[in-house]
Write a protein that binds this DNA or RNA. Structure first.
Lengths: 154, 154
DNA sequence: CCGAATGGTTCGCAGTACGAACCAGGCTGT
DNA sequence: ACAGCCTGGTTCGTACTGCGAACCATTCGG
């Protein structure tokens, strides 16, 4: 842990600030697609597969009443749909509508493009190293699949 | 850019997921201190120095009416104070109250402690590498000082 | 000294997030 | 069979967030 005397940023501040950066990109990208960050996040999660309300709460780390509201608003925008789960009458499956999938793909692609610009000052090897180290961090901390890798879609 | 076929996470997804992780830590830490993430962020920014409302908007990337509201609520909680700027009657300087500083120090310390735990699976050299690479990313993207380094306080 | 720019506030609105209370459908033990 | 529990979701009330438009006062430039 400890204080670094070498004039370089410490790992904690670097993590917090890069998170701030990513959030800003996410927010700006969402805005340009006419949705909120949260709705954008929901669309990205649903790109992989449909989820029940409870599962969505676990993935997005939201209380269940929050999920109800988010899905309500996104459904009202025509991007998402609640379907009956035939196995369990009370349960619901939330999935993308066709328009939702189209928007999700576009939003995801554009957001990826912009996030990818952030480490533009690193060379290929450094980017690989960053990806590997950060990848291990998120793996060790069991981050839910809130954002797909490029080969995880569909 | 391109798809990675080697089974490891790509840099974009790693950045987004680590941001999600940091946000979650920030939110949980704030909650335990009885404040919101945004108010926690405000306190952390003000730990370094007082700011005018406009400056706060630039640092936090908020519209000015949003800053007014945030400072209102935080002031109502007794953590922050508006002071007249003697040089310019219309301008205002927002600074921490004594209680605000106490809370900010504690919140900052605890949040640092938790963020620091995130890369626990990396060894010292790897953490240094991660800090250096991420540090260059945030530097190149001109992130405002939303979170101090350990030796930047006061 | 007038007009423009600057620094902030107010207002109205939509969205976010939570907990508590609630409800219906499923599950279990007897 | 059915009483009681658990689970999956919704509703409701509340506080906070974030924005743009309109506004107001002060300062600055010509």
């Amino acid at each position: 842990m400890g204080i670094r005397g070498d004039g370089r940023i410490d790992v904690v501040a670097a993590l917090v600030r890069s998170a701030f950066l990513v959030d800003a990109v996410y927010a700006e990208s969402s805005r340009e697609f006419g949705i909120t960050s949260q709705q954008g996040q929901l669309l990205c999660v649903l790109m992989a597969q449909p989820y029940g309300m409870g599962e969505l709460g676990a993935v997005l780390r939201l209380a269940k009443s929050s999920v109800t509201g988010l899905v309500d608003r996104t459904e009202r925008n025509g991007l998402v749909r609640r379907e009956q789960n035939p196995e369990d009458t009370r349960a619901v499956q939330v999935s993308l509508t066709p328009e939702g999938r189209t928007l999700a793909e576009a939003f995801y692609a554009e957001t990826c493009r912009r996030i990818d610009l952030l480490p533009a000052s690193l060379d290929a090897a450094e980017r690989d190293t960053l990806a590997e180290l950060l990848g291990r961090v998120v793996l060790a901390n069991e981050v839910p699949v809130v954002f797909l890798e490029r080969d995880e879609r569909h």
